[in-house]
Amino acid sequence: MNTAQSRQFVLDAIRGALDIKSDDTVRKATVQKRLKAHPSNLVPEHAKSSGDANLELFIEKLEGQSASVSRAVSTSDIPEIVAAYLRENNLPAEFRTGSDELFERIPWETAPTLTRHQGRGQGSDAVTMSRARTAAAETGTLFLTSGAENPTTLNFLPDTHIMVISRKDILGSYEDAWNALRQVYGPRTLPRAVNLVSGPSRTADIEQIIVMGAHGPRRLHVIIVG
């Protein structure tokens, strides 16, 4: 069977099984309507929180999944928070970021011990830093999008991953977060990768005992700005 035949075979088998008659306009319209309107299903009540309650929920959920969280009043606090975090965890004062404009705005020179590298993640990276595009407090989940600003490899290769997110980008539900991304990327379009991250990497594959740092970062630190 060639490619086109295989495709036809499967589609015909589906239509046969569903007993589809030649006039298919209703089904087609139903599908188009759903794709265009992408109606929301039930959103849990707790995901509809806002303001301080929403922020508290976000932090509680993240910490519950073994991430650590700190708050920055403004971007100018970030260098000192990063330097302190790395010092406290006995980590090298060196890290890698992408080209996100946020990282360009941060006055790194206020923490002169820090060295920032730029580019995609390397197997040898100890610490990397990314900016999360949005987040859902519902489960304490950050949404990272691929691209030169925040290369995907930075999210998975290092031992320690630091994420920065603006307070205003922390939303309630997954629905809110996807709608925010639709605003950026347009309807029915996503970047190559959207990584939803809710804590450091872990496994329970040996005797159901949870161990951090299976393949991805052992530590996740989230800095909330604003």
């Binding site: 990768a193 990584n195 939803l196 450091p200």
Partner: peptide
Amino acid sequence: QECSTYTTYTT
């Protein structure tokens, strides 16, 4: 878990 640690959408 309420969600897995990583949920990844690739396009």
